[in-house]
Nucleic acid binder design. Sequence first.
DNA 1: ATGTTTCATTCACCTTTGCCAACG
DNA 2: GCGTTGGCTTTGGTGAATGAAACA
Length: 968
Amino acid sequence: MRTRAESKRQKQSPGTLADISEEAVGRLLKRANKRSCSGKKKHDNISSRHDSIDTPEIGPNRNDKLDVDPRDKWNISEVEGCNRDALQKTAGEERLDGGSIQNASPENVNELNDLDWEDGSIPILDSTTNLPVTIEIGETPNSNRRKPARRSSAEDKELAELVHKVHLLCLLARGRLIDSACDDPLIQASLLSLLPKHLLNASKVTQLTATALYPLVHWFQNNFHVRSSTSAERSFRLGLAFALETREGTPEEIVALSVALFRALNLTTRFLSILDVASLKPDAGEYEIFSQDASRLSKGIFKSSTLMVARPNKASVSPVKSFSSNAIDNICETSQRGSCKSWDSYSACDITQSEGSSVAGDLDNKMSDSLACEAGHDTSEGCLTKKVQGTKRKGDLEFERQLEIALSATASVTLENKIQSNASDLDGNSMDFSSPLKRVKRIVSEESPSSQGISTAVGSRKVGSPLYWAEVYCSGENLTGKWVHVDVVNAVVDGEQKVEAMAAACKTSLRYVVAFAGRGAKDVTRRYCMKWYRIASRRVNSIWWDAVLAPLKELEAGATGGMVHMDKQQIESSTEHEKAKTSRELGNPNQDVVPGDAILHGKSTLEVVKEYGKKIDIESSVNNSFVATRSSLEDMELETRALTEPLPTNQQAYRNHQLYAIERWLTKYQLLYPKAPVLGFCSGHPVYPRSCVQTLKTKERWLREGLQVKAHELPVKELKRSVRLPRVSDPEDDECGGGNYEGTIQLYGKWQLEALHLPRAVNGIVPKNERGQVEVWSQKCLPPGTVHLRLPRVFYVAKRLEIDYAPAMVGFEFRNGRSHPIFDGIVVCAEFKDAILEAYVEEEERREAEEKKRNEMQAISRWYQLLCSIITRQRLNNRYGDSSLAQTSTDIQRNSRLCAQAGGCDGDRQSLVCQQEGTHRAKLDASSAALSEDHEHVFLTENQSFDDDSLVLIKRCHCGFSVQVEEL
DNA sequence: ATGTTTCATTCACCTTTGCCAACG
DNA sequence: GCGTTGGCTTTGGTGAATGAAACA
């Protein structure tokens, strides 16, 4: 339990952006590598699976629907991501090799059996003939009856989270890159040179308002157009220059140009982007990645050909790719390309990029491949492998079918998009404020009569979704100044409330809206997202995210900073204005919102401001006026929005809502206290602030937190105990009754508690529980006057000194289906602490000395045993072995003498190793040794040498005999 | 057609204080 | 005879998350 908590803490520990980034990427790569190893093991299985899928004639009963276990999909995608070459080889070669289920190992067969193959009728196959095989498919493609999908494991979730984080970091980096390109003086100067003279005055207004921006935006929209995609690869800065020259570019470039223009006009401007990241949840990725890429085909955060990183090797590991391949998991990746002609023509319209142009390029290639297969589904037999549909939603299938129709009927949606935008130019309809959704619908209705019904389907994808816009600081707005939303692509000014609806219409998730300026970034999602509860669970852990953004936020504040002077009344009126606006916007006939301050859960605006003022750098002066930075004011505004979120209209939203709760969704360990104020009603259920939801615990649980229930407090809630009570004296009862289910669990709330008062230790006696222990969950649980000594073997000392002590129980370990207490050290009265520690040190020294001595004795004894066995061996060799060894007999005697010494010379803490110095040497010296049998060796100091590495001292006698002495 | 609610299912987390035979 | 060691039965209830069907 502790370990888990620690790891959580670790996860949340803030660091520098580089650290965080490195950690996330490192962990991801580690995981990818780890998985690639396990992936390799499964490689054969997977390729067999591919083969079996690709070769229906020899595989088991086929159906057009194949439910693949999400885990299997992960594995496939991982192998793809980690070793694409290998997979391609597998997909290609093994098919040629006749790789099939027949070749599969029994293990593979088992795994294949595990797949949910469905029955279909197969005609009897004559293996000798090569006749085409017809498979009767039992079900129509539409009847995608779902097999209960296996839920993602914790490991999958962790990986998805890592991918999500890495993707976020990548998009943050991308945003910073664009932001810095917007500061390019050359681009800014070029833009200014294009601007008509009368528009140059925009910057000279002292109190800038949103209306003042309209002419600029209109001019910009008239002069710069969105191009569907770029075919050339270039850096973003070059791309921007190119877009400036041709006056058309990707939405990203167009918005960046607008930011550059505003900045050139000395307007404080930020570049905003929706970070449309991979899903935080494993299985949701399929849909989301698909749709993201669909959007990028036309709009393109990655689609733009900018190289964010150096061109990767094709075979390199790409976690993002691996993830996306999970999303699409396209089995016809390599084999079906040729058959997907319909998309090829589409890709000729420079929609896709060249292979391996970048990680992002790969993403889109994959995307286009998958789309190709889908597009060619009806017409091409080759694309029979579109089997992952089983896990797709009905809406997705519907969309895919309609997309097919659309693609066959029209060249491409994106082209039309372009045509349409051109058309609108020709019309001179510069005041077109229609939303992307409307535009898409119009394209379809005007230009594609054959593709009836496509409008909603295409519109329901992310095509046309606003992913980028600018924010200009208008000091003349809203008393204290305001960041005004400016979307030059859709020609919308001050339309922050429209963004969510527009994005929702295009199925873009508004999870992260980040503003970039001065190479920094700030999360401003709150300004654009009115239904926070919908995205909260799909955002990454806020502690991590805040830590990542902290350094960037400072940079951003530095770049957009400026001081704002205002007085108390201004704050009041400005926030009231905001509040009123919010209530107006969110007025809902189905819900009775309690007027007034209920929406702020009883806090007045000034309170919120003051509360927040503690956190931010608002300087209060004597005359009740404030000087605040723009950044801190914005923080305040966003915080206010966070606290004034409208009440959701559906009950489900209250389950995990951060601000509100309804009684219905409380768990059995929760209670509303106090049961007021009622903020409103949802379907007749009163809505309370989340802060009123109290977690209840048992007395014992509170005890762990160093709290105890006050005297005379009754439990606020009693639950039926359903846990089996411990076996009573008669075990037969248990068998007959099947367990005792009785008693209640008494729960108490926080308000019923007080600090723990444990009996004080008196006369050196430690107060213990009924088991003779002290439960040390925290320092608060220690009886007064006692200390916890977490030292191993310390209880021996206490016992020896006859001091009263209690074993300290610090937790439980669940082992063998049973809980076992974990003890760590002892609890003793504080007055004995020093005495025990002193004795402990002595005791430990003594113990260490004893242990050392024992080790030495053991070492000597072992050396002795070893040498004796060598001697015995040599003696045996001498007597029974080869005669050539006879000459060693004299050495044996020497050795035995030395061994005798070794056994006895423990005084100098050395053990002697008798060794001949190489056999050849021994042989050379054999004669001389034989001559001087009675010679007594003398080891002179000048003849000895010491080897530093092995710590061996070699002593030599003048007769040539040497002894190695090893220091212990 | 879309959004919401209800219900069933699955998974992961929390639970939480021996016994007995073999051996030295 | 006594103390120590290590293996043994790997629980089962609960809530959260999820998806499908029903319903609005």
